[in-house]
Design a protein around this nucleic acid. Sequence first.
DNA 1: GTCTATAATTAGATAGAC
DNA 2: GTCTATCTAATTATAGAC
Lengths: 204, 204
Amino acid sequence: MAKSSARKTRVPRGEARERIVRAAVEAFAEKGFEAASTRDIAQRAGTDQGLLTYHFPSKDALWRAAADRVFGIFESLDDRLASLEHADPKERSRGVIREFVRLMAKHPEFFRFMVDCGNRTDARQRWLVDTHIKPRFEYMKEHGVARVAGIEEAAVPHAFYALAGAAALIFAVAPNCRRLTGLDPRKPDAIEAHAEFIANLVVP
Amino acid sequence: MAKSSARKTRVPRGEARERIVRAAVEAFAEKGFEAASTRDIAQRAGTDQGLLTYHFPSKDALWRAAADRVFGIFESLDDRLASLEHADPKERSRGVIREFVRLMAKHPEFFRFMVDCGNRTDARQRWLVDTHIKPRFEYMKEHGVARVAGIEEAAVPHAFYALAGAAALIFAVAPNCRRLTGLDPRKPDAIEAHAEFIANLVVP
DNA sequence: GTCTATAATTAGATAGAC
DNA sequence: GTCTATCTAATTATAGAC
């Protein structure tokens, strides 16, 4: 790509492997697995392609490390949800929704990983579903909104994808939203407005 | 790609240019702009790369033709919505939602085009927003659910992306949903169930 | 209109210097 | 651990035969 030479080189701070993973998350989220090149990732990390294959045996292995990092964002969510334990059911549900929306706003890469991988049927897709998405889905079924909002068993898949899409899309296509509506969804006010909107939608 | 040689060749029926556009829609939706190769598109269309550049001066031009085709799906929606004119406001809103969900189920490529292009800030993104998404957004603001459901002006962007995400994500990542939940969202029963779920969500 | 051949660039993976 | 050099294959675009 011609414009890759014009990219500003990042400040190489911290361990090389750590910088590579961070750059990989950024690049894979931005372009998707196939379109993201290892050379571009190396450049974002302030290093070269040779070091990538030293730390990771293949592009696929690097992608898995990036996916592990992306799904690590939910650990911070668990902490925040614990503080909502003593609220009444309705307000607790609204609080869970709000925190989920805030998380999607802070980490739009989650949604992009899911969509990029979601219509494949290859080994990467199976690995992502079995390793990362399935545990999150089961967690939501047991502790999440489903039980509180009184959603029946058969509707859980619909609720899962409806909530994920409603909460995250606007942040995953933020430049789109900015140009279309004038509203930049990355701004704090817009994030809170979206959290409130989705909370009202699910728990009126 | 090694497995591209194993792809079954399509039956070459109809005009070549038409087959190319159809193949391009399929490939761009499946892989995204950069990851989809012109050779793959030619093979899906039952022809070769040389004919692609005869009908379209560049990959970018082919993508625009594919995008035109993808956004053409809304013409059929307009016809269906006309039959809802004489229903009462609440049932009309629910009917609009249901038809929109059915359209997203039939054409998951729409959502994938939107997401693939959505976090860019290049010429393609600007063209897609200005040419295709903006007219649809304005149409929804005037004739769509917004007025009937009584959504205030400031919440329209939130409603637009929330509805699009909630309605379409499950179909855009259908293999994901199939493996995760056992439910194949492409089946007619699942489509109707999702339509009903989203209608209940927006207009309880 | 359709297809073959090829040019110029870029991809992921590897070998080896230090 | 880090980086340079290079291999093989795949990419878009082009030239030209029929």
